[in-house]
Design a protein around this nucleic acid. Sequence first.
DNA 1: TCCCAAATCTAAATCGTTATAGATCGCTAC
DNA 2: GTAGCGATCTATAACGATTTAGATTTGGGA
Lengths: 333, 333
Amino acid sequence: MPDSDKPRPTLRTIAELSGLAVPTVSRALNDAPDIGVATKEKVRAIASQIGYVPNRAGLRLRTGKTNVISLVLCSDHEVTDHTGQLVSSIADALRDTRYHLIVTPYFPGEDPMKPVRYILETGSADALILNRIEVEDPRVAYLLRRQFPFATYGRTKWREQHPYFDFDNVAFGRIAAQELVRSGRRRIAMLTPPLTQNYAQDMLKGAREAIAQTEAHFEAIPGSSSDESGEDIKEHIRDFLLRRTDIDGIIAPSSTAAIFASVGAEGAGRVLGQDLDIFAKEAVPFLQHFRHAIKVVREDVQNAGSFLAKAAIRAIEAPNKAPSQDIISPKQV
Amino acid sequence: MPDSDKPRPTLRTIAELSGLAVPTVSRALNDAPDIGVATKEKVRAIASQIGYVPNRAGLRLRTGKTNVISLVLCSDHEVTDHTGQLVSSIADALRDTRYHLIVTPYFPGEDPMKPVRYILETGSADALILNRIEVEDPRVAYLLRRQFPFATYGRTKWREQHPYFDFDNVAFGRIAAQELVRSGRRRIAMLTPPLTQNYAQDMLKGAREAIAQTEAHFEAIPGSSSDESGEDIKEHIRDFLLRRTDIDGIIAPSSTAAIFASVGAEGAGRVLGQDLDIFAKEAVPFLQHFRHAIKVVREDVQNAGSFLAKAAIRAIEAPNKAPSQDIISPKQV
DNA sequence: TCCCAAATCTAAATCGTTATAGATCGCTAC
DNA sequence: GTAGCGATCTATAACGATTTAGATTTGGGA
């Protein structure tokens, strides 16, 4: 197989080969109405024969379209491969489209608006995908105001107006509470994500509603969030359980939270499945190998990624259609 | 804060503001020798005042440089956030450069050459970063032949010729074997990555050399690799240990391998730390929470990512300098 | 026979950047 | 006095694509 050092074919190559003008070739490939069927056939044949692929720079310069979708990610302390799954599934969903995925990270201490503003100001993407969505997420407000295409992994208070994919965290909270109560737990605490995040509120809501139907008691663990580093979670939970010997059930919103809540609980002398049950959701099936006693539902991130990719494309290409939205239920394991 | 819907400044904006010609502005910003100092000052002042950022499409079209570095990733079955760390650390290292990170995935069944060929043929990046490097990796051969900039996470047989970052897997194999022997283990087996991968060979080499100094016995577990899904690893290890009741030590090359090797061993009735020890390396500090008895060294992926990012840039910008190379030692925990 | 419309194609301009060659200026040197 | 030179800047073209307006051909109707 030769290394084919000949220059890449352009519209001009096709034009010369076919004896047509460059714009004609362009319009033929774009299936414009004013080009004859025979011409289109011929152009397409040549194009595929010489392996023509449009030059992204030329396209981008002329049209302003980057054909890029940017995933804005907060670098976190997660143990399990939640993020990797999201990245791969989006990139995979994009592979047979004209879009490329670029990853724009920001760090926990930083202003989440910064990467978003940068991308809009420099025009470096056609759409964004965001996660860690807050109820009144300023990024979403900004993007809505600018009418810039995006899709969120999570909902905001403006949920009707934008594409999103969300896990049904109300259902998760409800199921978690119900299951813990069913196993005889009566004093249940939740390790929540930061309360500004929408899914924290949803989980709380679901759990509270479920608990209200029972004799049990529910609370959010104060002064602590599942966003902290593993070690911090561990210490918080340990200290909390040492103070609160009455707590017999914990709800954790992620694998990482569940892992370090378990370790913290063990540090406080509890035995999982006996003194205390932990109910968690996980993106990667694994927690029951970690501690068999942990109760688990599954959140399918692959699914989320491919939905978000398609939703973002739709937001770009059909901005006037209703935003793609989906909510997926917890899968009981 | 206004939404600044005015069009982005270009070289032409600066040219009009300064009364200079567009190419002069361009050359001034690029610090060309034939532009007067005063002019450069003036141009730079205007540029920074109006927040000029070069248009990537214009640059790319004109120069052929994409200012993109592409990370070619195999979507795998990992449990821990190895990949996420790699992605974030590369993107982070790139954030104050002109380069963007784009992620190009491929899947285990697919031809690994495909994404690489695509990127070169369409000119969609200035450099590649590859992982899962084989001893005679065809992608590396191809890129060397084409003289295309890249950096690898792992070494090949052509290691002198290209930038790489590698974990010292020979040392890992040695340390793992030594530590297992020191804890009294005498029949040690390694769950290897696919044997075509360079680091599998390195780990084997280190372990074999260390074992040769002792009375112990060593082998690679046949017909199985750490690349398989967790469930497959679990079953393989369980079956292996049921057949081979003499085995009392296992070396695992990753968190995922260690997790499912543990579970498999437990399925075969072994008690970790008593009947059997497991020695593993991990990118995310976590295995000792999983099973306290697992012995562990740490592989710092963050470090790898930022090194690879810089190495890739250097490969682009100083192709004639010696390739950046580094090997990092296992960190004993 | 002539003209207009429809169908199909071409020419020119444009997006933002840089490379190449050429222009202008003041000064020195002969 | 002027050729020559260095220093500094400008004009033009080009990268590959699309858009707009205009050109050409063909055929139908009067």
